[in-house]
Design a protein around this nucleic acid. Structure first.
Length: 284
DNA sequence: TTCTGTTTAGGTAGGG
DNA sequence: CCCTACCTAAACAGAA
């Protein structure tokens, strides 16, 4: 009678999610960014469990890279031939895990009693209330494609200040500061996404490819091909730019008065400009 | 052809 | 029980 299979230590699945394994690999690298193949390599070298069924877990890992906002893709420079991009960690994801648990990330901000977009707005405000941007997408895994974090602070700013921002790549931190938003360190040096960074010499957009927070590609490439200083584009006086007066009900037309009130209560809305997300953030 | 990256879908498990 | 985080499978497109 065959003996039951004896499982060695290495047979055991490591107590890490794919997200934490990937983050581990990236953080362990000198450049803090790795191509996909090196992420595989790192994991297989350290965790014998992952030397088998490679197709299965590598597919899952790729899914995680694409799906989770905490990973940002950095294109190769022309002098870095090879397949695929480099993957790095989002500047604001340094504290994804807590209590020594690498299986599940720390909870996102959540306001009880709210759901859907209202919850996302509340989460953004609640995050700002403790001095940080909301972490990644407020959504789970079932949002329609092309609908990522529409209520993230930068997207809210983007909607309302599109005209100003399209002047040619404003530093996100400047915009946020201008508007009175708290500016976490991770955002300093970041550039508005989808707008483009102007090459100060050539005067042309450097690259349209930015991460979710508009982290400039060139700043993350290492070694830098050339110094790419933040472009000090002064923010134009914006007479026609009122303070951000997006209210919960504007963002969420379906919000009931009760849930709007709950939102305001949850984030401690300041007396003045009551109900405006701007004031919530400024005064929090 | 293989690798990389994106997306959708369905399922499991933990925590409140 | 519900929500969220996570896992897995699979289809597909584009690049190397």
């Amino acid at each position: 009678m065959p003996r039951p299979g004896k499982s060695s230590y290495s047979d055991q699945k490591p107590p890490y999610s794919y997200i934490s394994l990937t983050a581990m690999a990236i953080q362990h690298s000198a450049e803090k960014m790795l191509p996909l193949s090196d992420i595989y390599k790192f994991i297989m070298e350290r965790f014998p469990y992952y030397r088998e069924h490679t197709q299965r877990w590598q597919n899952s890992l790729r899914h995680n890279l694409s799906f989770n906002d905490c990973f940002i893709k950095i294109p190769r420079r022309p002098d870095q031939p090879g397949k695929g991009s480099f993957w790095a960690l989002h500047p604001d994801c340094g504290d994804m895990f807590e209590n020594g648990s690498f299986l599940r990330r720390r909870k996102r901000f959540k306001v009880p009693g709210l759901a859907g977009p209202e919850a996302a707005v509340a989460a953004a405000a609640a995050a700002a209330a403790v001095g940080r941007l909301p972490q990644f997408s407020p959504y789970g895994g079932s949002q329609p494609s092309g609908f990522k974090h529409p209520f993230a602070i930068e997207n809210i700013i983007g909607r309302d200040y599109k005209g100003v921002l399209q002047a040619g790549g404003l530093p996100l931190a400047s915009v946020m500061h201008h508007l009175g938003y708290p500016v976490p360190s991770g955002v300093v040096g970041s550039v508005w996404p989808h707008v483009g960074v102007m090459d100060p010499v050539a005067g042309v957009p450097v690259s349209p490819d930015y991460g979710p927070f508009g982290v400039p590609v060139k700043a993350l490439c290492h070694p830098p091909a050339q110094t790419m200083p933040a472009v000090p584009v002064p923010i134009k006086p914006a007479p026609a730019m009122p303070a951000l007066t997006v209210t919960a009900s504007q963002l969420c037309p379906a919000a009931s008065p009760a849930s709007a009130a709950l939102l305001e209560q949850a984030v401690g809305t300041a007396p003045e400009g009551k109900g405006s997300l701007h004031s919530v953030l400024v005064h929090s």
